[in-house]
Computed example of a mutant assay.
Amino acid sequence: MASFQRRFKELRHERGWTLDDLAELLGTTKSTLSRYENGLREPKIEFAEKSAGVFGVSTDYLLGKSDSRKGEDDAQLKMLFRKAGELSDEEREEVLSHFENTLNLYLKHKRR
């Protein structure tokens, strides 16, 4: 299986992102990302989780532990739920209501 550095670089290239683009998305520097891509630095779990969320893959895929891009735990959903945890109870209820309505509408139209 692939290494983190290979997967990280591969995913960035697939999306057509420069190191500057990705650095902005991840809140880090171009030089830090270059070190990851060249195997000069190993990611901490928090960085791997954030990166997986940005790329839309599982952390296991990004870390080279799996060849399946989407694990049982979808990284993007985990990140969204983590962000939702920062909201007040009232805000969270509103967001969940919108999400449920949007999902139901999507599924209704998809099944036609």
Rank of each mutant, 00 (worst) to 15 (best):
E46Y: 04
K44M: 09
Y36R: 02
T18R: 12
K44F: 03
F47R: 05
N104P: 00
L25H: 12
E42N: 13
R7W: 02
E46N: 11
E93D: 15
E49H: 10
T28I: 06
R69W: 07
S31Q: 15
Y106V: 13
E72P: 00
S88A: 09
S66Y: 04
R92T: 12
K78C: 07
L26A: 14
E90I: 11
K78S: 11
T29W: 05
E37L: 01
R69H: 11
A75C: 08
F55P: 04
E14K: 13
T59R: 14
A2K: 09
R6N: 09
D74L: 07
T18K: 11
L40N: 11
G64I: 02
S51T: 15
G16I: 06
G64E: 03
Y106H: 11
L40C: 00
D73K: 08
L96K: 12
R111V: 13
A75N: 05
T32K: 06
R82G: 06
A23H: 05
E91M: 05
G27T: 03
L62E: 12
D67H: 12
A84N: 07
S88P: 05
L77S: 08
V95T: 12
R111D: 10
L80S: 04
K108V: 08
K50T: 03
F47N: 00
F8M: 04
L77R: 13
D74M: 01
V95Y: 15
L105V: 01
R12M: 06
R92A: 15
K9R: 15
Y61L: 05
W17A: 05
G85M: 04
H109V: 14
I45G: 00
L80D: 11
F8T: 06
D21Q: 11
R92I: 08
E93K: 15
S3I: 00
A48I: 11
I45S: 09
N101Q: 10
L103Q: 10
G27V: 06
R112S: 12
R15D: 03
E10I: 02
L19N: 03
E14C: 05
K70S: 13
E93P: 00
V95W: 13
K110H: 13
F8E: 03
G71D: 04
P43H: 01
R112A: 11
K65R: 15
K83Y: 13
K108Y: 14
E91P: 02
R35E: 09
W17N: 03
D60A: 08
E14I: 04
M1Q: 06
G71L: 00
G16Y: 10
L26N: 04
